[in-house]
């Protein structure tokens, strides 16, 4: 079967009933979708399938043959962060980060679909996504900021893939 993952086309060998989560993580070694529950309950495995947010753990490979899949790696890089990624950093919306991969993907789908900064609307859009660390307030602020298109002064300074340091304007006030 064929998948285009983050703009790269791949031929995959996993059996047709394999979950897309296992195809991405175990066959393609794309580890950003997280196996938080493997049963649809947490949202950590969310990816975009043809632009729509989907729980990859609920999605059988055969049902997405030929589809374009985007994971959080495909949304932006440390050197070129997307608007939603910047907002998550600026508003401290990622704490342990385990929910963030799915959360950023779902928030991106929401913003791309023209979602507003209305808290209730964001809550509804992200209702299937669990975060045990942040208490959600920071996440709601981040998504609202991205939806509004707030100017955020984030300047990625270092570029090592892991643990990139960023400076936030005003940090030394």
């Amino acid at each position: 079967m064929e998948l285009t993952v983050n703009s790269v086309s791949c031929t995959v060998q996993s059996p047709p009933l394999t979950s897309l989560l296992n195809v991405l993580r175990e066959e393609l070694d794309i580890t950003s979708p997280k196996a938080g529950c493997e049963s649809g309950g947490c949202g950590a495995c969310t990816v975009l399938v043809d632009g729509q947010p989907r729980r990859s753990c609920l999605t059988a490979l055969c049902t997405v043959d030929g589809a374009a899949v985007v994971t959080v790696e495909g949304l932006g890089t440390p050197e070129d962060l997307s608007r939603v990624q910047q907002a998550f950093i600026h508003h401290y919306a990622a704490q342990c980060g385990f929910c963030s991969d799915g959360m950023v993907v779902a928030a991106t789908a929401y913003v791309n679909a023209g979602g507003s900064d209305d808290t209730d609307a964001i809550r509804e859009a992200l209702a299937g996504h669990f975060c045990r660390c942040t208490g959600y307030v920071k996440i709601l602020e981040a998504v609202a900021a991205a939806a509004r298109g707030d100017e955020l002064d984030i300047d990625s300074t270092a570029s090592s893939a892991n643990n990139t340091y960023v400076t936030i304007a005003g940090a030394e006030s």
């Binding site: 009933l17 296992n22 753990c57 059988a60 049902t63």
Partner: peptide
């Protein structure tokens, strides 16, 4: 296999 929201996780696990 319809939506798979129940069948796929049961199968995986």
């Amino acid at each position: 296999l319809a939506g798979g929201t129940l069948l796929v996780p049961q199968h995986t696990l």
